[in-house]
Amino acid sequence: MMKFTKQNFFFLVGGIIIYIIDIGVDFWVASKYFSQGQYSWSILILCFRGLSSLITQIFSYEWFKNDCEGTDTGKLKWIFLVHFFQCGIFIRYWFALKYGCQAAFKQKSSGDASETDPPNFIQKQAIDVVTDINMLRVFNTFLETTPQLFVQIYILMEHSKNNFCQYAAIIMSFCGISFSTVDYQISLRESLPDKDEFHVLSKLVYLFYKLLTITSWILSIALITLLSVRSSVILLIFLWICGFSWTLKQHTTFCKSKKMEYLYRTVVGIILIFTFFNIKGRKTKVCIFIYYATHTAVTLGILFLYMFWKPVIIKEIHFTIVSILTVLSLVLGIIFLVVYYGCFHPTAYCRPQACPDEVDGEAGQKDRVKTGRFQNFIMQ
Results as ranks from 00 to 15, higher is better:
Val268Ile: 15
Lys285Asp: 08
Ala104Val: 03
Asp67Ala: 15
Leu219Glu: 00
Ile58Phe: 13
Phe10Thr: 03
Ser187Trp: 05
Ile170Pro: 06
Ala354Leu: 10
Ile290Ser: 05
Trp63His: 09
Ile55Ala: 07
Tyr306Lys: 07
Gln7Cys: 08
Leu201Met: 05
Lys210Asp: 10
Trp246Arg: 11
Ser245Val: 13
Gly14Met: 03
Tyr340Trp: 11
Ser52Ile: 04
Lys161Ala: 11
Phe48Trp: 05
His345Met: 13
Ser110Glu: 09
Ser329His: 08
Thr347Asp: 13
Phe59Ala: 06
Ser216Pro: 03
Glu261Lys: 07
Gln86Pro: 01
Ser187Asp: 03
Phe277Trp: 13
Lys210Phe: 08
Ile288Met: 09
Ser40Arg: 08
Phe289Val: 09
Ser245Glu: 08
Ser35Tyr: 06
Lys108Asp: 02
Cys287Glu: 12
Leu272Met: 15
Ile279Phe: 09
Leu212Lys: 02
Gln250Glu: 13
Gln353Val: 05
Lys259Glu: 12
Ser60Cys: 14
Ile20Ser: 00
Phe377Ser: 12
Met2Cys: 02
Ile218Asp: 04
Val267Ile: 14
Cys355Ile: 15
Phe59Ser: 05
Ile170Trp: 04
Asp22His: 14
Thr213Phe: 13
Val327Gln: 00
Ile335Ser: 08
Ala126Pro: 01
Ser109Asp: 09
Val229Ile: 08
Cys350Thr: 13
Phe150Asp: 00
Gly243Leu: 14
Thr71Ile: 10
Leu227Arg: 05
Ile334Thr: 06
Asp72Leu: 07
Ile55His: 04
Lys98Ala: 02
Lys203Pro: 08
Asp128Ile: 05
Leu204Cys: 15
Lys249Thr: 05
Gln57Ser: 14
Ile271Gly: 00
Leu330Phe: 14
Trp28Lys: 11
Asn163Met: 08
Leu44Asn: 03
Val25Lys: 02
Ser180Trp: 04
Gly269Val: 06
Leu219Val: 00
Tyr264Lys: 03
Met379Ile: 11
Gln123Ser: 00
Ile91Lys: 07
Asp194Leu: 04
Val359Gln: 14
Ala30Asp: 01
Glu115Phe: 06
Leu97Glu: 00
Lys77Tyr: 10
Lys370Pro: 00
Cys355Lys: 13
Arg92Lys: 15
Asp67Phe: 14
Ile313Pro: 00
Cys101Asn: 01
